[in-house]
């Protein structure tokens, strides 16, 4: 490997190639830093802030900050964990997350982070915003109640000409991620499946696919999120 450097996460000696983003460098060293908007293979943008760490007394998003030689990164101190938990709680109250009736339940990254941080009740009041469910396209259901606006779908689901199936629509409180009707009409099964899997929550669902895996066998039923990294 080229240019290996040393750095520390929570006091643990780590090594990675210079310039690797901290989230990825941590992963290579068996350390899990939670992410929502970030996903392997996509250009990071530091939107959801769940991967916040502290470097030299400053809070930074670890998905957009590269490791440099000798830096000391603080990731799991009590106050950072509390900050991450509060972000999860905010996401829960600002949408409509009825986990008991959600197709993604058990496989949902937002819910899994709720489990990780043992969210018993959000500290913020529930907003109960009125949101739509768009089931008009042939392959996919887009449920706005659960969308956390992470943009993963916009960045990763494209046709052969590089056009995104999904796009931001409106702004501020009304901001939504919508599905392009024309493109969606010709969406392949594979791409529909990928869109569902890339969505961290249950906002993109392939039609007639819900509740396929029984409770107890789903991704996060028995294993906390990140345990595949921490081993």
């Amino acid at each position: 490997m080229a240019n290996l450097i040393k750095f520390k996460i929570d006091g643990r000696e780590c090594m990675a190639e210079a310039g690797t983003y901290i989230v990825e460098a941590a992963r290579q060293n068996g350390i899990f830093i939670p992410t929502l908007c970030n996903m392997k293979g996509l250009h990071p943008k530091g939107a959801c802030r769940i991967c916040t760490v502290r470097i030299n007394g400053r809070l930074m998003t670890s998905c957009t900050t590269p490791v440099t030689d000798g830096i000391e990164i603080e990731s799991e101190s009590a106050d950072i964990t509390e900050l991450r938990k509060s972000i999860i709680e905010l996401l829960f109250v600002s949408g409509n997350h009825f986990c008991p009736s959600c197709e993604k339940s058990g496989n949902c990254e937002l819910q899994a982070l709720g489990y990780l941080y043992q969210m018993m009740v959000p500290r913020y009041p529930y907003d109960f915003p009125l949101k739509d469910v768009d089931a008009s396209s042939p392959k996919i259901i887009k449920d706005q109640n659960r969308c956390i606006l992470c943009k993963r779908c916009i960045k990763s689901i494209k046709d052969e000409n590089g056009r995104s199936f999904f796009a931001f629509h409106s702004r501020g409180n009304h901001l939504e991620v919508v599905l392009d009707e024309e493109l969606a009409a010709n969406m392949t099964d594979e791409l529909a499946e990928l869109a569902m899997n890339n969505c961290p929550v249950g906002s993109i669902l392939v039609k007639e696919k819900g509740f396929a895996t029984p409770i107890g066998k789903r991704k996060f039923d028995n294993q906390p999120i990140g345990s595949e990294i921490e081993g």
Partner: peptide, 10 residues
Amino acid sequence: KLPYEVVKFD
């Protein structure tokens, strides 16, 4: 104790 398996939202 709150083991992982018992805190679930569904």
